[in-house]
């Protein structure tokens, strides 16, 4: 990866009392990179991610996201990134169109521009006949793809995805990754967590956190080479089985 650094962390640390949830992690993620952020339950992934998206103040270390400092410019970070959480975050009792308009409005996308982006989003997802359908009657897979596109409605340079494909069917899971590839091809940085180890193979680089520490970070090919195994599942197992900590 040669693009500009969009996410930078140095010795980033979070302590809760005597407990060190995230222990001095270093990270540099580039424009257009798909970065897999892996770890066992309780390894500190969520805490680290919360610091990077401006929701949690670090205890020590430094981090800049989209050029903004996590200590002093967290509001600017929130405006510059997209975020899709584990829990479905769109409104089930609003229609497809209403959801897009709502989030477009929250992020301050100008009306004419929002209309243009809405049209292209609806076209790309094949939702033309469903713009006035309430989300509750759409299949989960469609909703997840819509949630991704809505998280990108303000055209952020970085998108954070927290287990975006949990419970989704096999084909939708792949279609979802094609949305990720397409975003990456446009230069968007994709920061993604997952429990599906085949998805770890789709990332340009992946890191694995164990007990708050960054235990490994490299391309999937290099990690497999380093651990002399054939799959990312094996790499993960080798590293994470020694974990002392649970959630």
């Amino acid at each position: 990866m040669t693009g500009a650094i969009t996410i930078h962390a140095k010795a980033l640390t979070k302590r809760f009392g005597a407990f060190t949830a995230v222990d001095a992690i270093d990270l540099d993620v580039h424009a257009g990179e798909i970065f897999g952020f892996l770890g066992a339950n309780g390894a500190g992934k969520t805490t680290a991610m919360k610091m990077l998206i401006g929701l949690l103040m670090p205890t020590a270390g430094e981090a800049r996201v989209a050029g903004y400092d996590v200590y002093t410019q967290s509001e600017a970070i929130k405006r510059s990134i997209g975020y899709m959480g584990q829990r479905f975050s769109l409104y089930n009792d609003l229609t497809v169109l209403e959801n897009i308009q709502f989030y477009g409005g929250v992020y301050g996308v100008p009306p004419a521009e929002l209309k243009r982006r809405t049209d292209s989003l609806v076209h790309d997802l094949g939702l033309k006949e469903h713009v006035n359908t309430r989300l509750q009657s759409l299949p989960l897979g469609w909703k997840q793809k819509l949630a991704f596109s809505v998280a990108m409605i303000h055209e952020p340079k970085i998108i954070f995805l927290d287990e975006p494909t949990g419970g989704v069917d096999l084909i939708t899971r792949r279609q979802f990754w094609e949305l990720i590839y397409a975003a990456s091809a446009k230069g968007v940085t994709v920061f993604v967590t997952t429990h599906y180890m085949d998805e770890a193979e789709y990332c340009h680089r992946a890191s694995i956190m164990v007990d708050g520490v960054m235990a490994a970070c490299d391309t999937p090919a290099a990690l497999k080479e380093q651990f002399k195994v054939k799959t990312m599942d094996e790499v993960f197992y080798q590293l994470a089985r020694s974990a002392q900590r649970a959630e």
Partner: peptide, 10 residues
């Protein structure tokens, strides 16, 4: 095993 990490799943 839904939502459980790869080590605990094993």
């Amino acid at each position: 095993t839904t939502g459980v990490d790869a080590v605990s799943r094993r």
